[in-house]
Simulated assay, not measured.
Amino acid sequence: MKLIFTLIICFFSIALSAQKRGVVTVIKDPLVDSLIDRRIALSKKAAPAPATAVSRRDGTIVSMMGYRVQVFYGSDRREVFNEQSRFKTIYPKVNTYITYKEPNYYLRVGDFRTRLEAQRMMNELRSAFATLFIFREKINAPGLD
């Protein structure tokens, strides 16, 4: 019985592997290739160069990638504003940013060019605030002083 069962399994496995491979023919409009090429050219042209200039003489703000320290997050709006005012009493010159991503509000502070600057601020804040994180995001480039 085992021998018959084994022979049947072998027969079906040979039959399954004996199938031919098919050939796929793609029929498409030639405009598709031209649209893809145009999209690639536009994305190369529109790719933003890294911002090296910091601020202009006319006072406009230049944005660039940098770091911010997250000081507080929570779902209660009043708590976030209370933490912001508490932070502003300690560091009045440091910019604060509140963002809302459902269901939480996030309080992030500073515009730091390097992670080291953000780490220094985080070490200063460790005694006053419980949960601190460093995030890389688009910042308002601080002036070169």
Rank of each mutant, 00 (worst) to 15 (best):
K88I: 09
R57W: 11
K88N: 11
K45Y: 05
A46F: 11
R68Y: 05
K88V: 07
D58Y: 03
D76E: 06
P50I: 04
V54W: 00
G66E: 10
V71I: 12
R57K: 09
N82T: 09
E79V: 04
A51P: 01
K45T: 08
V62F: 02
S63L: 07
F72L: 00
S85I: 09
R86Q: 04
P48K: 05
S75E: 09
K45W: 02
D76G: 11
P48M: 10
S63F: 06
S75R: 03
V80P: 02
R86A: 12
T52K: 07
D76Q: 10
A51K: 02
P50E: 12
S75I: 08
K45P: 01
A47W: 04
A46H: 04
R86D: 01
M65V: 11
M65Y: 10
K88E: 14
G74F: 00
P48G: 05
M65P: 14
D76Y: 05
N82I: 13
A49F: 07
V69A: 05
F81L: 14
K88P: 02
P48D: 06
A51Q: 08
I61V: 15
S63N: 12
N82P: 05
Q70F: 07
K45N: 09
E83A: 15
T60I: 08
S55C: 14
Y73S: 13
S63G: 09
R86V: 06
G59Y: 02
S75W: 05
M64A: 14
D58I: 13
M64Q: 03
A53M: 14
T52R: 07
S63P: 09
Q84W: 00
V54T: 13
K44Y: 04
S85M: 15
D58M: 08
E83H: 14
V71M: 01
A53T: 15
S55I: 12
V54D: 02
N82L: 10
F81W: 10
I61H: 08
Q84M: 10
V54A: 09
D76I: 14
V71Q: 04
R56Y: 15
G59E: 01
K44P: 04
I61T: 15
V69G: 00
F87P: 05
S63C: 00
G74H: 01
R77C: 04
P50T: 13
S75F: 13
E83C: 08
A49G: 02
F87R: 02
S55N: 07
R68S: 09
